[in-house]
Simulated assay, not measured.
Amino acid sequence: MPSRLKIASWNINSVRARVPIVERFLKEESPDILCLQETKVRDSDFPTGIFRQLGFNHQIFCGQMMHHGVAILSRIPIHEDERFDWQANGEARHVGVRLECGIRLENVYVPAGGDIPDRTQNPKFGQKLDFIERMTRWSETCGAPTIMVGDFNIAPLECDVWSHKQLLTVVSHTPIEVEALTRLRESNDWIDLGRHFHPPPKRLHTWWSYRSPDWTKNDRGRRLDHMWATPDVAALAVDHHVHEPCRNWTRPSDHVPLVTEFVI
C-alpha cells in the first residue's frame, strides 16, 4: 500500500469507445485506482489488456452488454468483491472492494431517472428515488472506513448547476432528489470531498450535455459525479480535483474524472 493513495472516478460512457482517452488520462494523472461507471460492456468483453499494460493488474467488473456497468481497476491489491442490487432489478450499478489497509471502496452508478420528475408519470424517476433509499438503508449499517465514488446523477447544491432557478424542475436537481441525497449523506456523516476542498459557491461541474454545440462557451454544467468518505477516511484526504480538460479530448465522455489523493 503506498503512503499516498490516489483514486480516480469517471463515468466513461462506454469504455471500449474511450480507450484512447482513458489511456491518456492514466498516463497523465497516474492514479493508483480507477473506478469507472457506465462501462457498457459485458465482463467477458472488457478491454483488460490495455489496463494491464499500464500496471492495473487488479480488475473487478460488474457489467452488462450496452447498458450500465461499473468497474474497479487497481495497481494495488483489492479484495472482497461485493455487488449490491440497489436498483432491485439486476442492473449492474455497484461494485465494492476492500483495500489492504482496511478501507472499503464502493463504486456506484445511480440511475438517471428519466425526464419527468414524477414517479407516477415516470416510473424511472421512482426507481431512482428508491435506489437512493436502498443506499441510505445500507449506509446506516456501514461501519467500516469507506470511500464511496461514482455518478450519483444528482447535483445537490445551488452552485452545483449552471442555473439553479432554471433547473429546479429538471431531473438531477429537483428538491425531492436533493432531499433524498441529503438523507443519504447524513445517514453516515459522509463528507462530500468535492465541496470539502472546493467550498460553495465555487463552480465545480463534472458533466456537460452532448447537445451543447460548444460546452466551453455555454458552460451549462452540473456536478453529477461525487466522491464521499466517512469522516475517518476524509481526514486522510489531502487533495481533490476535477480533470476538466478531458471533456475537450477526442471522442470524450460527457462526464470528466474526479481525483482524490489520500495519505494512508
Rank of each mutant, 00 (worst) to 15 (best):
R137Y: 06
R18H: 14
P245K: 01
E177N: 11
L168P: 05
S163Y: 02
T136M: 04
H240V: 00
Y210Q: 03
P257S: 13
I191D: 08
E29K: 11
C246F: 00
A112P: 05
W138M: 11
I103C: 04
D219R: 15
S9E: 02
K128A: 08
E244H: 00
T216H: 05
A144E: 15
H68N: 15
Q59F: 04
L5T: 01
P145G: 03
P199N: 05
E186G: 00
D160F: 07
F131N: 06
E140F: 06
M1P: 06
D254R: 05
I50F: 05
D32Q: 08
P77E: 14
N13L: 08
A155I: 04
E158W: 02
D239R: 09
R185V: 15
D160Y: 07
C142A: 14
T48N: 11
I176S: 15
P257I: 08
Q87N: 14
K202G: 03
P117G: 11
P156C: 08
S9N: 09
D115A: 15
V19N: 00
D45K: 01
Q87E: 11
E133L: 01
E106F: 04
N107P: 09
I60W: 03
W190S: 08
E29D: 12
N13C: 08
G49K: 09
F262S: 00
N248Q: 08
V263T: 09
S3W: 02
G126F: 11
R247M: 05
H243N: 03
E28Q: 06
N188R: 15
D219H: 09
I33N: 12
D160N: 15
V97N: 10
F51S: 01
L193R: 06
L224Y: 07
M227K: 00
E100F: 05
R42T: 13
A155P: 03
D254V: 11
W10L: 13
V171T: 13
F131H: 07
L224M: 14
K202C: 13
F56Y: 15
Q64D: 15
D239E: 13
L157W: 01
D160L: 10
A92I: 05
D214R: 01
V22G: 00
K124I: 14
T206G: 07
R24V: 00
H79V: 07
D219T: 02
G143P: 02
Q64K: 12
F46I: 04
S14E: 09
R16M: 15
V95T: 14
F61K: 05
P252V: 01
T206N: 14
G49Y: 09
H243C: 10
P200C: 05
F131S: 07
I191S: 04
L204H: 02
G69T: 09
T216I: 04
P145F: 13
R16W: 04
F131R: 01
D225H: 13
A71I: 12
V233I: 09
E29V: 15
P20Y: 04
F51G: 02
R195F: 01
P31N: 04
I116Q: 13
G126C: 04
S9A: 13
S172L: 11
H243Q: 03
P201R: 02
